[in-house]
Simulated assay, not measured.
Amino acid sequence: MSALAQRRVLVTGASGTFGRQLCAALTAAGARVVGVDRQPDSIDGVPVLGCDLTDPDAVPPTVAAAVDRLGGLDLLVNNAGVGGPAPAELPPDEVVRQQLEVNLLAAWRTTAAALPALEATRGRVVFVASRMALLPLPLAAAYGVSKRALVAYADALRHEVGTHVGVSVVYPSMVASPIHDSTADAGLSLEGVSRPETVQGVVAAILRAATARRAPRDVATTRRGRLELAVARHAPTLADRLVRRTVATRIAAGDLDAAPLAAGMLRRHRDATG
């Protein structure tokens, strides 16, 4: 981690589950860190600037203030994100709009505001996406769509600025955090669907992306994650079959019976299976 010594880093979602440990790990490695979150705060000596990243007018001055405080910028970690249940068969509501705003557009705004400073230092930007960007699950369409779109944005950005700014995407699976609370409250827990992993493993993957000699394009957080990404990319029909089998197992076990948002899917599944 000596490559992080004195590097100037901006972390969004700094007060969240990943953000706090990421700020601590970066600081321990000798980096100078400023965070951004909805409310101003201080995390073990790391200043957190308050900003609503869904407000287009608020983002540029907040990023400018962070860059000024750091004296430049070497690394941006777009970590801020929200989740929530959202069946694809239902019209988009406020839950869907919020996930698109935070998971996609907020990262886009923040990156655009930070790019001049990153280009000046030949810096890097790391996007925290999700395994669901490539392996989408039913009843969570907004999250999968927003994260897949985030990957598409990163890919386009890499073509535009990759000669001067490294662009990497990290793909965590399920990590126990408040981001899943609303989904669990709706009776749509991911228990038994996604294999849990640790926050520390995700943070380590982000740091690998930040310190590799060349910015890696895609970074899985576990060995299993690397396999899942490969299957999703190179054998999408097999990936679909695996997801359908997992969902069918949950339906057969009655795991979704108490979830009103799953009613349509349950009805169609039972019609199809007799």
Rank of each mutant, 00 (worst) to 15 (best):
Y171N: 00
V63T: 07
D218P: 02
T121S: 15
A252E: 13
V167S: 01
V175C: 06
T163C: 11
A129G: 04
A272T: 01
D41H: 13
A31S: 10
A114G: 04
V36M: 15
G254R: 07
R131P: 01
L10A: 15
P236Q: 14
M132E: 05
F18P: 02
S42H: 04
L207K: 11
R213S: 12
E119Q: 12
Y153R: 12
L238P: 00
G50E: 10
P92E: 11
A230Q: 00
V243N: 04
A259H: 14
V199D: 04
D74F: 02
S194H: 07
S2Y: 08
G225S: 09
A259T: 14
A112I: 14
A29T: 07
A142I: 10
P61M: 07
P87F: 14
R122S: 05
L139V: 14
G274A: 00
L100D: 03
M1H: 14
L53E: 13
L90Q: 14
P85W: 09
D185S: 11
K147G: 00
L266K: 02
A106N: 14
V63W: 03
H269T: 00
S182V: 11
T12P: 08
R224K: 12
V46H: 06
R148V: 03
D181V: 14
R217E: 09
A152F: 00
A106R: 11
N78L: 07
H269F: 05
L22T: 07
V199Q: 09
T246I: 01
S189G: 13
A113V: 10
A152I: 00
A142V: 15
V199F: 11
V82W: 06
I206Y: 05
G19N: 07
A107I: 01
R214N: 03
D218S: 01
L90N: 12
A112S: 12
D93G: 15
A31M: 03
E197Q: 07
T222K: 06
R233F: 02
L76G: 13
P91W: 12
N78H: 09
A107D: 06
P172K: 03
G84L: 07
C23M: 12
A3P: 08
A204M: 01
E160T: 12
P138S: 06
S189A: 15
L100Q: 08
S2C: 06
V95M: 10
Y171D: 00
A120Y: 10
P236L: 15
L100Y: 06
I251C: 00
L190P: 09
A14W: 10
D218E: 07
V48G: 02
R195E: 11
S2E: 15
L4C: 13
T211N: 13
V96A: 09
L135D: 04
P136V: 05
V9Q: 06
R20P: 06
H234K: 02
A86T: 15
V102M: 09
D41M: 11
G16Q: 00
M132A: 04
T110E: 06
D57M: 13
G83V: 07
Q21W: 06
D68P: 03
T54D: 11
A28Q: 09
R241M: 01
V96H: 08
Q200I: 02
A14Q: 05
V46W: 08
A106D: 13
